[in-house]
Deep mutational scan, measured.
Amino acid sequence: GALPANLDDMKVAELKQELKLRSLPVSGTKTELIERLRAYQDQ
């Protein structure tokens, strides 16, 4: 599914939920979580 547009405004817990939905690792800082989601979306 498409990512929420406001990733930077989301809480870390919400970002981790998005990562879990995509079976991605949820470790790292908020910035790393956002980068991981964006990289996944670009595939």
Rank of each mutant, 00 (worst) to 15 (best):
Y40S: 15
R38P: 08
L15T: 03
K20N: 08
V12Q: 02
L21D: 11
L3C: 11
A5T: 14
L21N: 09
V12A: 10
K11W: 01
T29A: 09
K20F: 07
E32F: 11
A5Q: 10
Q41K: 14
A39V: 14
G1E: 04
T29I: 04
E35D: 12
L24C: 03
D42S: 10
R22M: 06
P4G: 14
E35I: 07
L15D: 04
P4I: 15
A5R: 12
K20D: 09
V26Q: 13
R38K: 08
D8W: 14
R36H: 02
K11F: 02
R22H: 06
D8P: 14
P4W: 12
E35F: 05
Q43R: 15
S27G: 10
K16G: 02
T31A: 12
L33R: 01
K16R: 07
L7H: 00
D8T: 08
Q43I: 11
A2I: 15
K20S: 12
Q41H: 08
R36M: 03
D42Q: 09
R36N: 04
T31D: 11
L33S: 09
N6W: 01
R22L: 06
E32C: 07
T31V: 10
T31E: 12
K30F: 03
S27Y: 08
G28E: 01
P4L: 15
L37Q: 01
L24W: 01
I34H: 07
K11L: 06
M10G: 00
N6D: 07
S23C: 12
L15E: 01
T31M: 09
D42T: 11
E14L: 04
A2S: 14
I34G: 04
A39G: 14
L33E: 03
P25A: 05
K30S: 06
E32S: 06
E14M: 11
G28N: 00
Q17T: 08
S27R: 07
Y40T: 12
E18R: 02
K20G: 10
I34T: 07
T31R: 11
L7D: 00
V26G: 10
Q43T: 13
L19V: 05
Q41F: 14
G28W: 00
E32M: 05
S23I: 04
L15S: 01
K20E: 13
L3R: 10
D42C: 11
E14R: 07
A5S: 08
Q41W: 12
Q17G: 07
R36Q: 06
Q43A: 15
I34S: 07
E14T: 08
A39S: 14
Q17A: 11
D42R: 06
E14V: 08
E35R: 10
P4S: 14
L3I: 13
K11D: 10
K16V: 08
